[in-house]
Nucleic acid binder design. Structure first.
Lengths: 230, 230
DNA sequence: TTCCAACTGTTAGCTGGCAAACAGCCAGAC
DNA sequence: GTCTGGCTGTTTGCCAGCTAACAGTTGGAA
């Protein structure tokens, strides 16, 4: 079984794309923002006349369906782009609410200007393309899991994925860098909160995980990995 | 409810990207292929040292999970790119088998050369970016449906989506251009074949659909649309 | 210090859809 | 023609996970 996820997730960003000067040159409307945890960057339903480039930190993309069901589509990292789905250049609606998880730094520009930037810097264009492609793969993989694995496996998978990309060592083992509570985890996994809660609890009694209100820590990784495959 | 899918799906392709000469200039390995229905273009598990650009026709991307479950990830149209997920430029595995649905025309090049092409033609780069982004949106939407809608609604949705993008008028109403049998539809919907079969049957007796071995035809679109929203 | 809001834990009952299994049907091969 | 393989139609259990509902916890605000 390939684990492209944990491997592919964090790619080094070309320094070029991080340089405010570069952006400023192409984009009159350029602005760098520093935001705090839980800040809402853009909201589902807004007219998408802005492109955001995440320079540092994590952003959660989530949506609410017409029936009020909650779903988290993705957790973004450094180098990801979101906001306007610059499809037709014309005002498309934003599909997901973007919220800072922990403090973040983002660049903000207008879509037309972003297009300029990309057109004039082929390596930024290429980076964007590879990123979009790998996000693509991730989503397909997640769909596969949702369709064919049971919630227990998906919880394990999701936690490992988060740990792989955004984890750091702590005293027990490996702690997630992202503050997530159980409902949020459930939304991310695509399952109901009660089920996720029970699963986590069982994992704790088995000494595989340790967790509290807003953190999760992996104690026995290999066990988790075993669970992942149903 | 927005129907970005049927709307956004078919975008006119810039003629530029269609020109073999242009490709030939950047890509020594360039080759244009004409393939017949059911031809396999690349196979899940292959080393991905080729990029394909679909010039004309439809391509089905599907995969088999470790447990043998079948899943169709996408149906591609003119202008879509597939094959190597040119993430790390290095040999990544291909995740989905690509099969021609009906006769097709594709361009084939090496990933490095494709990168050249894209770097030297910013509007091709941009087109690719917008396409990837809109495919992104579609997948998220599909995930949402899988999680929160029942199979009946998903069947309706899928058929409408296919019709919107790839349909043409026929004597009864609106016929899908793509040859799909029930198992294939089931794989695309993310449901089991028996369930899909029963649903289709019921839709036929309700005079909403007409279908046969490899074709589907919508007779009462508005009814289908009503079903779509559960 | 107490109170409240937001989080976690747990149960009970219901149900959509799955797997398995089989029967009819059709189309092209021979 | 007739045979065979693949497609379609349908039924029967069965169960994972959902909703609803409630109880226990906890941490910060007042």
């Amino acid at each position: 079984m390939r684990d492209h996820k944990s491997a592919a997730r964090i790619q080094p960003i070309t320094d070029e794309a991080q340089s405010p000067d570069l952006w400023r040159r192409c984009c009159p409307s350029f602005m760098a923002l520093e935001l705090l945890d839980k800040a809402v960057i853009c909201r589902q339903g807004d007219e998408g006349h802005t492109v955001f480039y995440l320079v540092k930190g994590f952003v959660k993309l989530s949506r609410v369906t017409v029936n009020g069901d909650q779903l988290t589509t993705a957790i973004l990292t450094e180098g990801d782009v979101f906001g306007a789905s610059f499809i037709g250049t014309t005002g498309t609606m934003i599909e997901d609410t973007a919220m800072a998880k922990g403090p973040i730094r983002v660049f903000r520009v207008k879509p037309e200007e972003f297009r300029n930037l990309v057109s004039q810097h082929s390596n930024i264009a290429w980076e964007l393309i590879t990123r979009l492609t790998s996000r693509q793969l991730q989503v397909y993989h997640k769909m596969e899991s949702i369709l064919f694995k049971e919630v227990r496996a998906r919880v394990a998978e999701t936690i490992l994925e988060l740990a792989g990309a955004y984890g750091k060592n702590c005293q027990h083992g490996y702690e997630l860098d992202i503050p997530l509570n159980q409902s949020e985890l459930a939304d991310l996994v695509g399952a109901s909160r009660p089920v996720v809660s029970t699963i986590l609890n069982k994992l704790r009694t088995q000494d595989i995980l340790e967790y509290g209100r807003e953190y999760i820590c992996i104690k026995r990784r290999t066990e988790l990995e075993r669970l992942m495959t149903l």
